[in-house]
């Protein structure tokens, strides 16, 4: 996907004409067209942004006096709550909390890196394999099947995990009949990294391969023929032709993924373990941690501090990554 945000929208450098009635009419129509989206973006994306200062305040809910200019209790409380500097961040690093905070940060980054690498390798592999098949009908059938899990919700997957792995589940009944010990999925954390990786591969590989497959289909066949005539095997063709062509898409997707490295697929991490408290150390990511604090009696400043770290770090990371890419290969940079 091309995100040439700034460059491509510029009008052609023809001689500047005065704004005629027609031009004004066109631009007014265009403004009207973007209006619904602008309203949505303002309400759901921009309005919550100032709320990020909650991370530096002790949020106290209070009722605005009758003559105050905003009568909304949240907005009033946000404005009037006292500033506390970095106190909320210190809470996350107290001796009693530092271990769990670090564990959750580590989980988040570890799972994200794992998914990025595994996802990339398998999606590209799948795209190449499907492209090489001689029978197009079969290729289509395979791809339809691999793409299907993308449409199944994580909650249904949680049912599958339960049906396979609970004490009455299929895996345990097989283990029983083989005389092996039983597997306590919801009590032992060792299994969860595997479950998440498998679930992630299952759900996203088919979808991830579409872009790569489309790019490979678009590569000129003459390139491969010339390479084959020169004696390059399939692997040489892959590394010297296919991979360079895929690079822009890969770089783009990885930059966006780096920006989300402290975020996570909340639905998956939250629903698959089914709220099993014993496996928290392997299943909690920062998102789940923030949500669970938000819904407990914890003062709002603490989850706000963790959420601030997520947003701020993500933003900085995406800028840095993009700057690096821009330095090395300007044409591949996101913006």
């Amino acid at each position: 996907m091309s995100l040439d945000v700034v460059s491509s929208v510029q009008s052609p450098p023809v001689k500047k004409k005065r704004w005629g009635a027609d031009k004004i009419y066109s631009n007014l129509s265009y403004l009207l067209m973007v209006l619904p989206g602008v309203v949505w973006l303002f309400l759901f994306s921009y309005l919550p942004m100032p709320g990020i200062i909650m991370a530096f305040k002790t949020y106290k809910l209070s009722r605005p006096p009758a003559d105050y200019f905003i009568q909304n209790r949240f907005v009033y409380s946000l404005i009037t709550s006292p500033w506390v500097g970095l106190d909320n961040f210190e809470y996350l690093t107290l001796p009693t909390n530092i271990d769990s905070t670090l564990t959750y940060v580590r989980n988040t980054i570890f799972y994200n890196l794992l998914f990025m690498i595994v996802g990339l390798v398998l999606s590209v592999m799948l795209a190449v394999m499907i492209f090489e098949l001689t029978n197009h009908l079969l290729a289509k059938i395979y791809h339809s099947i691999f793409f299907l899990p993308f449409f199944i919700s994580w909650i249904v997957v949680a049912y599958v995990v339960y049906a396979l792995g609970s004490s009455a589940g299929i895996i345990n009944s097989v283990a029983d009949s083989l005389g092996l010990g039983s597997i306590e999925l919801y009590k032992e954390k060792i299994y969860w990294p595997f479950i998440f990786v498998i679930a992630n591969i299952w759900k996203y590989t088919g979808n991830g391969s579409i872009l790569y497959l489309a790019t490979i289909t678009g590569i000129g066949r003459e390139l491969y023929e010339a390479a084959a005539v020169d004696g390059a095997g399939k692997w040489k063709q892959f590394t010297n032709i296919t991979l360079p062509h895929l690079m822009p898409v890969i770089v783009l997707l990885q930059i966006l993924a780096v920006g989300r490295i402290l975020g996570s697929d909340f639905d998956m991490f939250y629903t698959l373990p089914n709220g099993a408290a014993l496996v928290k150390d392997a299943t909690y990511t920062l998102d789940v941690f923030v949500y669970s604090m938000l819904r407990s009696a914890t003062p709002l400043g603490y989850p706000a501090a963790a959420a601030f770290l997520q947003s701020a770090f993500g933003f900085v990371l995406i800028l840095v990554t993009n700057a690096i890419v821009r330095k090395i290969r300007p044409e591949m940079a996101l913006f």
Binding site: S26, M49, G51, D287, Y291, L300, A304, S311, F315
Partner: peptide, 28 residues
Amino acid sequence: NFKFGTFFTFFAFFTMLFNGGLVSYYMV
């Protein structure tokens, strides 16, 4: 011929890079 194209593209794109965090979103 849309004069504000760059602005509105950025207006949408920026929200993919930065957000107010879950707590603020929840409250708002």
